[in-house]
Design a protein around this nucleic acid. Structure first.
Lengths: 367, 367
DNA sequence: CTGAAAGCGCTTACAG
DNA sequence: CTGAAAGCGCTTACAG
């Protein structure tokens, strides 16, 4: 009735004795409990067949005594699911992506999935290789947070595994996408600066292509009847922000406010402004896009347009793990919110109680 | 000669045709190339048997045409190795651990291993669960960066998988450990502050237990014949540093310098000092332990005792992947270095060229 | 140099 | 409620 002893392949497995050494398999458990291996599976997985309580108890005892742990590789091979998700980020050193990785990992963990994290360092070639290696590892789905907005990251459909693009501003053909309404977010932020009386607002942004945050910045200034401010294209890093701010504010005809497309750039800009002898917010108001923890501890605390990172991560994970077969791939757009700090010139909202959460939160923008 | 067509288990596999749909297996490749499945393996793995060049070429063609990708779960089941490493960090939101995760991932990738990253949020209970779940996923080894310095994280030997403790200050019984010489690092930093003429140097540190950084701080002050400065125990976070600094510097008899046990705490302290109306470095000199990117962009730039994160990660990964069977588990201690910024009161070393690397680096401390 | 076959540890129809 | 058996996709002695 019990299955036969496992055949040693190289002499390293035990030949006798009741407590097997080395990896304990379900067949050891079956033998110890005096049941078939199928029953062990039924108990471990609570199904798909019912098991008499007395039998189940014997199996659970055996599992405890032997210290049995199911082999995930075998299970994955059999079921076709590894219960793993891949996450591709462009740079984990950027707190925005670090926070995103945390959020994704926690959402996935709640659903019993682990996360294989890879870091492309913003290199499209590396990104492609990493995505391929993730599929080779049989992940059940891949979340890609890419810097390559316009371009096709990789030939997604040939991947043979569900993909969702996270941190993408707009819909893309045939791919699930999740992102923030960056245009509206930028508009909201710049509008706030205009509300403080600024009429010349610089922009630091990335890449070469015109994207949503630049449009939002224009939307706000044009709606107020103002001319476009000056603009600097730099990488989404502290250094990029530093260089951009030196350029925008180093001359005589400088703007009185800055909208930075990322917290990292704003942090770099703060240093540049300090070196130029400009005070924030007295001489230059600063507002940035992202809303990471680091921005909260910048000096002065940054006023930010906050991306709802947790919600976005949750959506991406949910779509991968519980896809809606009814629906074609679509784009989920999240609404960013304004979080007031000190860098925009508002009165300090929570001076002296910096240990708690962000201060005022503006109402979500109208759809 | 070619193996038979795969048997569909549920009708989803193809019944005929030369180009299989769904997952392409090595048996499809074998059939297409007119060889046995063994030969496909030999080609894919470049061994263990030699293959005639013409045959190998046919196999490579078949692989290309069919888009074959080996199934990692099957390979793992057969070989007993997943080519995956687990990495446990206490909080990925702390840039020190984010940088460590990047370094580990890159070292592992160079050796063909992927990294399963999990985040315990400094909860020992969660940490235990995560470690167990990592072993259940058959990782080849686990790198644990824990906050639980003194205590046994988990019953490591029963895990049945190699473990190295990263970011540990001292040796531990029967476990591989890798860490920085924190005592010497702290001594080095505090000595530097004393060199600036400070005689009363506060310390912000974590946890409840006395550890290496506290000893190093004492070593330096006592060696200079100074009394111990005041001390605040807080979490290793920006908030912890903020609270600690308010306590240490909020009274009348305040120190003139601060040694923070982590960059995060120093960042929080900078805010507190600002709110107290104290200038850095004029009124209070600040120096911290870690040396993350964020510290470089603090205002003012922090002078830090830098942990060689990349080297430590490399060592940890190497020990896991290429263990030395000759040697008993031991502790690898790395030497930290002093990196001068502006917060300690030194003349600014690279003002205006902040886009490049850190400035002066002190010689490594004597062994 | 190449192939037939066993087996890694699981899950799950199928038959009792 | 329980068991015998097939099969997931690989690798690798073993035999030719």
């Amino acid at each position: 009735m019990a299955t036969s002893a496992p055949l040693p392949r190289d002499g390293s497995r035990p030949r006798g004795g009741s407590l097997p050494r080395g990896q304990v398999t379900r067949s050891d458990v079956a033998r110890y409990a005096g049941v078939s291996t199928a029953v062990v599976s039924y108990v471990v997985n609570s199904g798909p067949r019912p098991v008499a309580e007395a039998t189940a108890e014997r199996v659970r005892d055996a599992i405890r005594v032997l210290g049995y742990r199911p082999n995930a590789s075998a299970r994955a091979l059999r079921t076709g699911s590894t219960q793993m998700l891949g996450l591709v980020v462009p740079e984990i050193g950027n707190p925005l992506f670090a926070e995103m990785a945390i959020a994704v990992e926690q959402c996935a963990a709640r659903r019993g999935h682990a996360v294989l994290l890879v870091n492309s360092e913003s290199d499209p070639q590396v990104e492609r290789t990493l995505i391929r290696s993730l599929t080779a590892r049989q992940v059940d789905g891949i979340i890609i947070s890419t810097v390559q907005h316009g371009s096709a990251v990789v030939d997604l459909p040939t991947l043979g595994v569900p993909v969702v693009l996270l941190n993408t501003f707009s819909a893309q053909d045939g791919v699930e996408t999740v992102g923030v309404d960056a245009r509206e977010g930028a508009r909201l932020g710049v509008e706030h600066l205009i509300g403080h009386g600024h009429t010349r607002i610089g922009l630091i942004i990335g890449g070469a292509e015109v994207e949503a945050r630049e449009h939002g910045w224009q939307d706000a200034t044009r709606a107020a009847g103002l001319p476009d401010g000056p603009l600097a294209r730099e990488t989404f890093t502290r250094e990029g922000g530093y260089r951009g701010a030196l350029r925008l504010f180093g001359g005589s005809d400088r703007p009185t406010a800055l909208f930075a497309s990322s917290d990292m750039q704003a942090i770099g800009a703060l240093r540049a402004l300090g070196e130029l002898g400009l005070r924030v917010p007295e001489d230059v108001a600063v507002l940035s896009f992202d809303g990471t923890d680091e921005a909260e501890y910048a000096a002065p605390r940054l006023t930010v347009v906050r991306q709802p990172v947790e919600e976005m991560a949750e959506e991406a994970v949910a779509r991968l793990i519980d896809p809606d077969p009814e629906r074609a791939p679509h784009h989920a757009s999240f609404t960013p919110t304004l979080v007031i700090g000190r860098s925009c010139g508002c009165a300090a909202p929570s001076e002296g109680t910096a240990t708690t959460a962000p201060a005022a939160t503006a109402a979500p923008a109208p759809a």
